[in-house]
Amino acid sequence: MLEARLEQSSVLKKVVDAIKDLVQDCNFDCNDSGIQLQAMDNSHVALVAMHLKTEGFALYRCDRNIALGINLVSLQKVLRAAQNEDVMTLKAEDSPDALSLVFENSENDRISEYDLKLMDIDQEHLGIPETEYGATVKMPSAEFQRICRDLSLLSESVAIEATKEGIKFSCTGDIGKGAVTLRQNPNVEKPELGTTIELQEPVALTFSLKYLVNFCKASGLSNTVTISLSNEVPLLIEYEMEHGYVRFYLAPKIGD
């Protein structure tokens, strides 16, 4: 059986908020390393990979591998009943029909108990190769979100170029064009506010802004985001949590 306790409900609430517009039904794979999820969107253009490691749980017990087939819209309805600061306990049997969720406030005088029906989801897992990326950019997640939102008002796609000058996001649309260039600017006192760029080789790729704007819904998970790019391979965007991560992969646009 599974028994997993989070000190703060907000962790799972934020993860679900971050991915629910990308995937609808997915398996939460529970095993002795924690709770993992890998799912592609319907068009097979984007993939989300999530890992909540056991260290992030106040209590974690999972004797066997258990796949929890969850509809994320339904899960979000249940999670709405949890206050951010509530302690959350997830429980499931070995071959579960339902996931039990218990929310307890810090004063210990309210216990909310919910059951979420589970579904059988036959999900293909993709093998993601280890990649040495040509460019890796670490920057404030709020700034990345702003850039994606601003450019998405002008165009459907963005060209991302990483050179020794910096990283440039540019787009062209019906009403005009726009570009934002970020230069390396580490912040010694507050590293989460700085921008660092590791460049092995120049990279130039084009991506759909609709997906990038969608990924940015994970900004609440981390003050920083890491963007990894290589020519002709999917982009990796990672939001690292204290004990886990949410990663998004996006296939580039191809051709002229």
Binding site: S43, G127, S157, T206, Y249, K253, G255
Partner: peptide
Amino acid sequence: KRAQGTLTSYFGSR
């Protein structure tokens, strides 16, 4: 105009 690629051409089924 560029076409949107898919992930299945980069990542293999496991």
